[in-house]
Design a protein around this nucleic acid. Structure first.
Lengths: 194, 194
DNA sequence: CGATTCTTTGAAAACAGTCAATCTGTGTGG
DNA sequence: CCACACAGATTGACTGTTTTCAAAGAATCG
């Protein structure tokens, strides 16, 4: 399934397809079955992860043992922990699979080689970083300005493909609200639409 | 006061000081007095902004007219609206000065020239972008996982220089809570410390 | 089908928001 | 220099929302 990754690169960058075999040689495929972990809190994370199939959840565990979803990644999304990747410090997060999934892994060394030797690849990565930053800014904006109901509506609009695949209790945890609260919000919204 | 900006570049990058005059020529200084605006909602934002003095607040205004602080920038911080800068769309935010301030402005064209022609400058910018992204991730983490009191404690630890300069009602708005709530949290915390 | 996981619902408790009044410190103009 | 206005902080009473806990219904999977 590296093909999906190469197709992504073809679409998003000016990387010469002649370099694809070289990229492919640096890719490692990993299958993760539902409920299995890709990353554990405390790991030092040394890979870049591209999802080719399934759905992964990044979450943290608080002092009371509660899980908080931070990020979801489905096909054609990236995941991992950039902080740990960049700094070499152990990660505070966990990543597990919500469905049987498949990812492409690239080691830090290989990734840096690609960035250095294929400028269009590097441009693509910087572009992604840019967009990720802008989208995280907009997410912060949502946390500060929106109440629970507005957060949920925004989530629906922004990630319609996710809403149908991800359990509600995890969406609630992503939004920073209790699952019961989300259930009640959904009831209110469905009443409004009648 | 471009000096402060050049000192920042010297410290954070490998840019050859021989290029400093060239950078300086592209910088425009702007003074902003307390309560004045640097950016208005609806503007298309075409500058990069580096703060050399004072304190600026980025905020949005909701449908009921309430202000929500999104971001503060003091000396040696960057501000502006990257989304508008990159996409050319009008900004949803306002920026005003909380103190008499001074900033360095670089136009988009000049900024792109610098990034293209001075690779170490470009590296510095990418590094900043990286760190900004990581820090916004950690802020999201805080919004999802922390209650009001924990958010405030985290803010104090992270930005001790800001806490003494920024009015509490604006910190409250930054944290997404009512100013009265913040006042009560502070009382609780000060009791605990006795 | 039985077990597990997820969602919904209800009632009570905890929490945060609003409104209004008071208090404090700062700065301005007479 | 004083009086006053003003912005910001605090407090109390009240309202409304969200969480928590517990239980009962769906849905899913082996």
């Amino acid at each position: 399934m590296v093909d999906k990754f190469l197709a992504y690169i073809r679409e998003r960058s000016e990387v010469d397809p002649g370099d694809f075999p070289r990229i492919q040689a640096m890719c490692q495929i990993k299958k993760i079955r539902k409920r299995q972990y890709l990353m554990h809190e405390g790991d030092v994370w040394k890979h870049v992860v591209f999802v080719t199939k399934g759905c992964l959840r990044t979450f943290s565990i608080d002092n009371e043992g509660g899980e908080h979803a931070i990020y979801f990644a489905i096909e054609n999304w990236w995941t991992g922990d950039r902080q740990s990747f960049v700094t070499g410090l152990p990660t505070k997060f966990n990543i597990d699979a919500l469905e049987d999934s498949e990812v492409v892994l690239i080691t830090k060394d290989n990734f840096e080689t690609l960035c250095k030797e294929l400028p269009p690849f590097n441009d693509m990565i910087n572009d992604i970083l840019h967009k990720s930053f802008i989208s995280s800014q907009s997410r912060i904006h949502g946390y500060v300005c929106n109440n629970a109901q507005e957060k949920y509506r925004e989530f629906m609009e922004k990630y319609p493909d996710m809403i149908v695949r991800i359990p509600q209790n995890m969406i609630a945890s992503f939004l920073g609200i209790a699952p019961e609260t989300l259930s009640r919000i959904r009831r209110q919204l469905s009443k409004k639409l009648l």
